[in-house]
């Protein structure tokens, strides 16, 4: 197991150049970042339309795509959407439902993550779900898998086709965006990697048997049923797993670092439709 991780890391390190990883993260504006980010992939994979990046590695690899399309014939996440719908419709002990926190509309994906100026923090959908629960006298759910992933699957399904609002309304929000960008490009862990080492510079290349997916579109399809997990998991679960593969201590799911990271990445993916839940290997 250790050996496999090392091998993946070694492959990444081998091809890691520097696109703009070494630039200071505050030197460029969000609009410039979006253009740089997108142009990079458009040049790297000519002919792949922007919206296709919602499908991760399946946008760029035919063989993987064939496997995936067969799985999508009857996707493994479908029962979880129904479980999530049941959660949405089941009242809390006080008689209220999730609808009371979300304008009675489960199609909320486009509104998250967003900058909450009163609290000076990025609010994600899983965080809003747990705040809804605690406000109604219920215990918060665990953030990585299980019930919250089911509810997110239902809400994501109802939101399919929406695009991120991805607004950065003021300087405080911009500061959170830049912190997220910092998390993305800061080198860390035993291998001294950043997220871009594998998912920009090495996207489409093989790390042993794995084809590294392009960073563009990475936030659109969550929650994801990963065959490797054999179950549904959340974006922050995957963030944590990625950091472990880099041999770095992962941040906490829904902690400030990952919420800022999600805010930054969602901004990079604006104009790409939300298409969760989805299936990955």
């Amino acid at each position: 197991m250790k050996l496999k991780k090392l091998a993946i890391a070694a492959v990444c390190a081998f091809v890691a150049g520097s696109v703009y990883a070494d630039k200071k993260t505050t030197e460029t504006t969000p609009a410039e970042d979006v253009n740089t980010y997108r142009d990079y992939f458009m040049k790297r994979f000519p002919g792949v339309p922007l919206e296709e990046y919602a499908n991760g590695v399946y946008a760029i690899d035919k063989v993987s795509r064939d496997n995936w399309e067969a799985v999508e014939e009857f996707p493994p996440y479908e029962p979880m959407i129904e479980d999530g719908e049941t959660m949405w419709n089941t009242p809390f002990a006080n008689g209220k439902t999730y609808g009371s926190c979300f304008n009675d509309d489960p199609a909320q994906r486009k509104n998250y993550p967003h900058w909450d100026d009163a609290r000076k923090t990025v609010v994600t959908l899983p965080m809003a779900i747990n705040e809804c629960r605690t406000a109604n006298g219920e215990k918060p759910l665990k953030y990585k898998k299980g019930a919250i992933a089911n509810l997110l699957a239902y809400m994501a399904y109802e939101s399919r086709g929406q695009k991120p609002t991805a607004e950065i309304p003021n300087d405080d929000a911009l500061a959170a965006y830049n912190k997220g960008k910092q998390v993305y490009f800061a080198r860390r862990g035993q291998f001294n990697f950043n997220c871009a080492s594998c998912h920009m510079q090495s996207a489409g290349q093989k790390a042993r048997a794995d084809i590294l997916s392009p960073a563009l579109g990475h936030t659109t399809g969550w929650p994801v049923y990963r065959s490797k997990w054999g179950e549904l998991g959340t974006l922050h679960r995957r963030y944590g797993g990625c950091m472990k593969q880099m041999r770095a201590a992962p941040y906490k799911a829904q902690g400030e670092e990952f919420r800022n990271l999600e805010y930054f990445m969602t901004h990079m993916n604006k104009d790409i439709e939300f298409n969760g839940p989805s299936a990955r290997k």
Partner: peptide, 14 residues
């Protein structure tokens, strides 16, 4: 069946 299985745990076959 795929020429290359993406993940041996889930190989679609018809």
């Amino acid at each position: 069946a795929p020429d290359i299985a993406e993940n041996g745990a889930v190989v679609p076959v018809t």
